[in-house]
Design a protein around this nucleic acid. Structure first.
Lengths: 231, 231
DNA sequence: TGCGCTATTTGCACTCAGTGCAGGGACATT
DNA sequence: AATGTCCCTGCACTGAGTGCAAATAGCGCA
């Protein structure tokens, strides 16, 4: 029973994902059986399981690929500033969502209402987080508490990305998510980021000047001292 | 077929968890059927599903309870310093693991080797993180970027706890995990914590004193200024 | 001791996800 | 036309999870 003989070559996978999303949205995830998906896609039940390992895998068809891309992206930056590298990885992930807003939004509606899918998505998030954590751990391997910092910062990065993404999804895909990400990253760098600093506390700077110091000169000194502090 | 009539009242649940863990460890999770667990526990298959919603739920029998306790713990601290409140919540969670090292270690071995259980555990972690996030969001509701900070800090807190716990578990339950947690929290406060500060940058303090100021008095001034800065 | 009341337990029948195996058909290459 | 290679299919099977109705055990109470 195939409506369209068409190119029955290779597009099974796409047909399955489309049919599945349609049925999930119309009837709900739990109420949709794999048999129903297969029939709607004009494909045998067994073929479904050739393309997807499980019923819920059909909702996240390209996450595996994206995880690999992110991993490669990080591996390509062995010397960059670690936080910058993470930031650019987050841009990569967000961009891949923004590239297909429809899919992202439909998937969001689905995961939002189906606990089972929600869990699956969280598992994916964990995969990204693990990439970040391992990357940072390697970069900070000689810093005191570097392994702890790697975990904490990686988790923060994931949360930051998901916060921006969720905000965008809640807004129905309107708004500039990438700009929001930039703002969030800027905030993060300023106040939330934890490069492992061991036991060095926040510094209090005491500067002593002549009482009648030239204000411009004073400013120059402060500027210089600050740039020295930054490194 | 019951070996021991004993008190067949109410201890079914305990018997099931014990039998399940035994079988999981001996044969592996996937190779153990619910029927086998039920039989080993001297209980019908249907009874298993009366006590546990799914096969994997038997591995995390008391997480639901702990989540509730943590939630109540946070709700009881509506005015404390938010980071302190989170810290004490983490202590609560860790303590509950440390209270039964055997169970914790066996579960760790299991989740470490069974992806399915791993996913389930991650879902639980997410539950705690959500509690933290909601708590912080409420506490920082009027701060700029407070919602973002809540998510990022909550994720960091979770990661911090899991880092300490995992370290302890990897060490076979030896070592003082609670002391490690304190150390990690101390580090966190110093270098990783992000109370939402909006656009306020790191402060550089310029203090001016008479050239011949009494060092003790200078120190007193610095102390005073610092404590003013802290709030 | 016997009588209900309630909560736990059980049996049965059923749906559906997921797997292993063996084969069938389309397509390209030679 | 023969051949090899994918992709797809049918079939039979295991095992998780559910709904329903009945059985049973403990317990308070007369």
């Amino acid at each position: 029973m195939q409506a369209e003989p068409s190119t029955r070559r290779g597009d099974s996978r796409r047909r399955i994902t489309h049919a599945a999303m349609d049925l999930f949205e119309r009837q709900g995830y739990a109420a949709t059986t794999v048999d129903a998906i297969a029939e709607a896609a004009g494909v045998s039940r067994r073929t479904f399981f050739h393309h997807f390992a499980s019923k819920d895998a059909v909702v996240f068809p390209d996450h595996e690929h994206l995880v690999e891309r992110v991993g490669a992206h990080l591996r390509a930056q062995p010397t960059a500033d670690p936080i910058d590298a993470i930031g650019s990885a987050l841009r990569l992930v967000l961009a891949s969502y923004l590239a297909d807003p429809d899919v992202a939004l439909r998937r969001y509606q689905l995961t939002r209402t189906t606990p089972e899918l929600r869990e699956r998505e969280i598992a994916w998030v964990q995969r990204y987080q693990l990439l970040f954590s391992r990357y940072l751990d390697e970069r900070w391997s000689d810093a005191p508490q570097g392994d702890l910092a790697a975990d904490v910062v990686a988790a923060g990065a994931s949360a930051l990305h998901n916060h921006v993404l969720r905000h965008w999804l809640k807004g129905g895909g309107r708004g500039d998510a990438m700009a929001d990400l930039e703002a969030a990253l800027a905030w993060w760098r300023r106040s939330a980021v934890a490069e492992p600093r061991g036991d060095v506390p926040r510094r209090v700077v005491v500067a002593v000047f002549d009482e009648d110091v030239d204000p411009a000169q004073l400013a120059a000194h402060v500027r210089e001292a600050r740039s020295a502090l930054e490194r």
